[in-house]
Amino acid sequence: MSMWVFGYGSLLWNPGFEVAEQVRGTLPGWARSFCMRSIHHRGSEIEPGLVLALDAAAHAACDGVALRVAPGTEDTTLAYLRERELISSAYLEKMLHVDLSDNRRVEAVTYVIDPDHVQYCGGLPLEEQAQIIAHAHGGRGPNSEYLYNTAQHLTDMGVADPDLDWLSRRVAAILV
């Protein structure tokens, strides 16, 4: 049985594990948004940044990528992902069905936001998101770099995300 991981943010451009297959996929019932305050990777406790998370939304669907983990590396991959994604317990690890672009359906390890966690901040206005992203910096670098990399990889995949496109333009303007 193959292990799959669903990527919708930094996993698109920095999976950090050996990928045997990569297929565009859609996760029904979830929306990608900057709804998690980042106090480690892209911000600090003093000046939190924002990172993408999946927020449950009945009529939404998130386009991203399904990554099939290289056979024999499942245990080390899962340990790596848990260390990376569950650093502050704001994400919940779930096994969710992803519809692949080649008409397969797989169950994938997916990290979604815990709406009851203190780092959850769903519904922030885009301008407020842009101001936070423009100024935050964490252990993995500037928050703006995370935004730009994710937006560019979605564009390269042919995935339209108007909010990320607007945020990219706005943050670039703030940083001029």
Rank of each mutant, 00 (worst) to 15 (best):
M1L: 12
M1R: 14
S2L: 01
G9L: 10
L11P: 05
L11I: 13
W13F: 12
F17W: 11
F17G: 08
E21V: 03
R24D: 12
G25H: 02
G29D: 02
A31E: 12
A31K: 10
S33Y: 01
C35T: 06
R37W: 05
R37A: 07
S38Y: 06
S38H: 10
H41M: 05
G43F: 00
S44V: 01
E45K: 15
I46T: 15
P48E: 13
D55P: 00
A57R: 14
A58Y: 06
H59G: 06
A60N: 07
A60S: 14
A61C: 15
D63W: 08
G64R: 00
G64W: 00
L67P: 01
G72W: 10
T77G: 13
L81H: 09
E85P: 05
E85A: 14
I87T: 07
A90Q: 10
E93G: 07
K94E: 15
M95C: 08
L96W: 04
V98W: 00
D99V: 01
R104G: 09
V109R: 01
V109T: 12
V112A: 05
I113F: 01
H117C: 05
V118R: 04
G122V: 04
L124Q: 13
L124Y: 04
L124V: 03
P125K: 11
L126Q: 12
E127G: 11
E128M: 09
H135L: 12
G138A: 10
R140W: 15
P142W: 07
L147H: 06
Y148E: 03
Q152R: 11
H153N: 13
L154A: 03
L154S: 03
D156H: 09
M157A: 14
A160C: 02
P162V: 02
D163T: 07
L164F: 12
R170T: 15
A172I: 06
I174A: 09
L175N: 08
V176P: 08
